[in-house]
Write a protein that binds this DNA or RNA. Structure first.
Length: 647
RNA sequence: GGGUCCGUAGCCUAGUCAGGAUCAAGGCGCUGGCCUUCGGAGCCGGAGAGCAGGGGUUCAAAUCCCCUCGGACCCGCCA
């Protein structure tokens, strides 16, 4: 029999058995759901129920006695995956699996479902949009942001394996001050040669331009306030000092570029105004601005795409933010919002009263907020008539919901408030179901020890750098361990291993927790890493290349504890997968893959497969190896990591 | 000041949402073994925490509630 969830079948057997038994013993008592848990020790079986603690308390009978009654009532013959039911502790009912049957079902199922094994389909397939990465097209992707594409891509793969129809969208954030800054800087430097990727070049221009503008602004402001020795002045001075020191570093590193940029910019009078004019013109869709800004965004984006394609991350749709500004979607939304009671004018500025929406619709507790917490208002329109990021995100969200039932925004933790305001805006507009189906998948950042990366300050390690280093280090490892392979093969392997290591390091940690960047952490080849799992896979494949093809293994011959362990882990993969997909937990797949690799290596070391005697045992073990290799590969693929045949 | 999140061995991480078993799980590092013909990026063993601290709820708390402490993030006419 082929099952897409062998452990789930075992669980169902246990539930049936317990339910029937309780019905027999206590016909009048109704049970809502019977609690089960996976025991920590092998001697306690494969699944245990704590249902009798509760019942015992209600009936004022020792739970242990009840458990014994239950165990006595159950006849395991009626449940194919059940071998024995025992009682332990203060009243646990322990269910022991019939391994001959469980092994057979599991191994048969894995081998026949192959790439589909474990990826149990949902009953309610949805059209989903996973929006991720969505980096500003003004600088290269940094390692600080790198969890976003890696987690976003893993989520998309997992949800798609779950049977949802998933589209991956990249929101190109081309509207806003930052693109005006880089476009302006770029426009002053037409013919400078730069070897390297365009996003790296533009990132540098962005930093240098920001630096000059910022220093300038702070100096002017200090000049204006020079008579008052207030706290504000001190603050300004402090900021200026920071920028001056940043400038010093940049000037030293990029002398000629900095010099020519400074020369050009100093000819212009009011830099602040130039930037905000350019921003406004772009938002209005004026040709001059379009020419300048689109050009730099496209250049940057080409570089970003190149980076992403290196790590095998692709998108179905590139959605330009400016589209929504230019096609009147933004103005329609603003008009609709103005018709609600939640928008008010504050001088020239338009504000959205998010707090009131939450109060009126009783949403605060749903949003996890205290009733007396006041949600800050959101500025929709600036004094100069331009809109803000979150404002434009409202029509974009509506646009996404025309194409999907549910939208998952993979966005940094620091944007919690704007993401919440965005949802509240949808509620205010009457789109409550859309608001409910808008999910902010919040993740923490990768930080450098001691400080946060900042592209404005030019303080970042690019993802390109890390990828390159990862591949380089992987090559050295391959060279060390498999010097006999051809150069071509070594290169191919080192890509798979290096990128795998990087992805795994960022995917394995709970997304909500920060990751502190160190090279050794992000490029790790030892246990608890992608290379370790990949190595286990390669070992399994190596056995399979040498072994004869097994048709009908007799899995009941697998009787050693480690063989049972391995079967059990394989059997559990579908439940791990379902939990990971339903609760958006890519890291649990990473964790699982590592556990499976661990068990496999123990097995590998303890028992021979090919040369086991008799032949039937060897066949059964080879089938187990094959099943393991399939599940290792399936799990790795879900987090975007390739399982190599050799390494 | 207000809000959200995090705090598990020297270090990194799982377990916390859906509370359970007198060894709290892995990895790094430390340490003692294993070159057993299927790949040593490996395997087997040892030492090392009682889950930030304190109260409470419960038959049962790392897990739930409250308080305190420490750290991160947010409270922009930035994104």
């Amino acid at each position: 029999m082929v099952s897409n969830n062998p452990f789930g079948d075992f669980r169902a057997n246990c539930e049936e058995a317990l339910e029937q038994s309780l019905k027999k013993l206590y016909p009048s008592t109704r049970f809502k759901s019977l609690p089960f848990e996976v025991p920590l020790k092998k001697e306690f079986g494969e699944l245990a129920s704590t249902a009798l603690f509760d019942l015992g308390k209600n009936l004022k009978i020792d739970p242990r006695q009840l458990a014994q009654q239950v165990a006595d009532t159950i006849s395991v013959e009626e449940h194919p995956l059940l071998r024995a039911v025992t009682v332990a502790g203060g009243g646990y009912v322990n269910f022991h699996a019939a391994f001959d049957e469980l092994s057979r079902t599991t191994i048969d199922s894995v081998r026949s479902l192959d790439a589909e094994y474990g990826h149990v389909k949902t009953d309610r397939p949805l059209k989903l949009i996973v929006e991720h990465t969505s980096a500003n097209p003004i600088s290269p992707l940094s390692i600080g942001q790198a969890r976003n594409p890696i987690l976003g891509d893993a989520l998309a793969r997992i949800l798609s394996a779950r049977g949802h129809h998933v589209n991956r969208h990249f929101y190109v954030d081309d509207v806003g001050r930052q693109t005006a800054v880089v476009a302006y800087g770029h426009s002053k430097l037409q013919d400078i040669a730069f070897d390297g990727k365009p996003d790296h070049y533009l990132g540098l221009i962005y930093t240098l331009t920001s630096c000059i503008i910022e220093t300038n602004r702070l100096k002017q402001e200090l000049e204006r306030n020079k008579d008052s020795a207030s706290e504000a002045t001190q603050q300004l001075q402090k900021q200026l000092d920071e920028w001056v020191s940043i400038t010093a570093v940049l000037e030293r590193k990029h002398r000629s570029l900095f010099k020519s940029l400074l020369q050009s910019l100093s000819k212009d009078q009011n830099l602040e105004k130039i930037i905000s004019d350019l921003n406004r013109e772009y938002e209005l869709g004026e040709e001059r601005a379009k020419k300048l800004i689109r050009r730099v965004c496209e250049l940057s984006l080409a570089g970003i795409k190149e980076t992403l394609s290196k790590i095998d991350i692709t998108f179905d749709s590139w959605d330009w933010e400016s589209t929504f500004a230019w096609n009147s979607d933004v103005s329609k939304v603003l008009k609709a919002l103005k018709d609600t009671e939640y928008v008010y004018q504050e001088g020239p500025v338009l504000e959205f009263d998010a707090d009131r929406v939450a109060d009126n619709l009783g949403l605060k507790s749903k949003l996890g907020l205290g009733e007396d917490y006041e949600i800050p208002s959101l500025t929709l329109v600036r004094a100069d008539g331009t809109t803000l990021y979150t404002t434009r995100d409202i029509p974009y969200s509506l646009w996404k919901f025309k194409r999907a039932d549910k939208v998952i925004n993979v966005v940094g933790l620091e944007q919690r408030l704007p993401q919440m305001q965005l949802r509240l805006a949808l509620w205010a507009l009457g789109h409550s179901s859309k608001a409910k189906n808008l999910v902010h998948f919040a993740h923490n950042l990768v930080t450098l020890p001691g400080y946060k990366m900042s592209s404005r300050r030019g303080r970042y390690i690019t993802l390109d750098q890390v990828v390159e280093e990862a591949i380089k280090r992987a090559y050295e490892e391959v060279e060390k361990r498999s010097p006999q392979r051809s150069m071509k093969e070594k290169t191919a392997i080192s890509k798979i291993v290096g990128i795998g290591a990087l992805k795994y390091a960022l995917a394995e940690v709970d997304p909500i927790k920060p990751v502190v960047f160190t090279w050794d952490r992000v490029i790790n080849f030892e246990r608890n890493s992608a290379p370790y799992i990949q190595y286990s896979y390669a070992r399994a494949r190596s056995i399979l290349r040498k072994a004869e093809k097994v048709e009908k293994p007799n899995c009941a011959l697998l009787v050693k504890p480690i063989e049972h362990d391995l079967v059990l882990i394989l059997a559990r993969y579908p439940e791990v997968f379902i939990d990971s997909a339903e609760n958006l937990k890519p890291n649990s797949i990473a964790e699982y893959a590592n556990l499976l690799a661990d068990k496999f290596n123990t097995f590998y070391n303890a028992l021979p497969a090919i040369r086991a005697k008799p032949k039937e045992l060897s066949e059964a073990r080879v089938a187990l190896v094959e099943a393991t290799s399939i599940v290792l590969r399936n799990a790795l693929n879900l987090i975007g990591i390739i399982a190599p045949e050799r390494m």
